Simulated scan of single mutants.
Amino acid sequence: MMHPFGNEEAASLEHLFWFFCECVQRGDWELAQACIPQLHQWQGDGSEKVAAILQALIACPSQLR
């Protein structure tokens, strides 16, 4: 894997999003919650993805896997 020269912030946020999703799937709510402030500032559709996951979790928590 090559280093994302000049694109470190975006790559870091993508990794954080992956980690957030893993935490949600495992039920590690405290860790998932800790990711949200950083992901909320994510430009593009990243923050929308997080919002959609949280809305789905609230609407139907037993179906989100």
Rank of each mutant, 00 (worst) to 15 (best):
M1L: 03
M2I: 03
M2L: 14
H3M: 06
P4Y: 07
P4Q: 06
P4T: 15
P4N: 06
F5V: 11
F5K: 07
F5S: 11
G6C: 12
N7V: 13
E9K: 14
E9I: 07
A10S: 15
A11T: 02
S12G: 09
H15T: 04
L16A: 09
L16I: 13
F17P: 00
F19Q: 15
F19A: 11
F19H: 14
F19T: 13
F20S: 04
F20N: 03
F20P: 09
C21M: 08
E22Q: 13
E22Y: 02
C23V: 02
C23G: 06
V24A: 13
V24I: 15
V24L: 11
Q25K: 12
R26A: 11
R26Y: 01
G27D: 05
G27Q: 08
G27K: 10
D28A: 14
D28F: 08
D28E: 15
W29V: 09
L31E: 15
A32C: 04
Q33E: 14
A34Y: 07
P37G: 06
H40K: 02
H40W: 12
Q41V: 01
Q41D: 01
Q41M: 12
Q43P: 10
G44A: 11
G44L: 01
G44Q: 02
D45V: 03
D45F: 00
D45G: 15
D45H: 04
G46D: 05
G46N: 10
G46F: 02
S47D: 05
E48I: 01
K49C: 13
V50S: 00
A51S: 02
A52S: 04
A52T: 00
I53N: 08
Q55P: 02
Q55F: 07
Q55G: 08
A56W: 01
L57R: 12
P61T: 06
S62C: 07
Q63Y: 01
L64C: 08
R65Q: 10
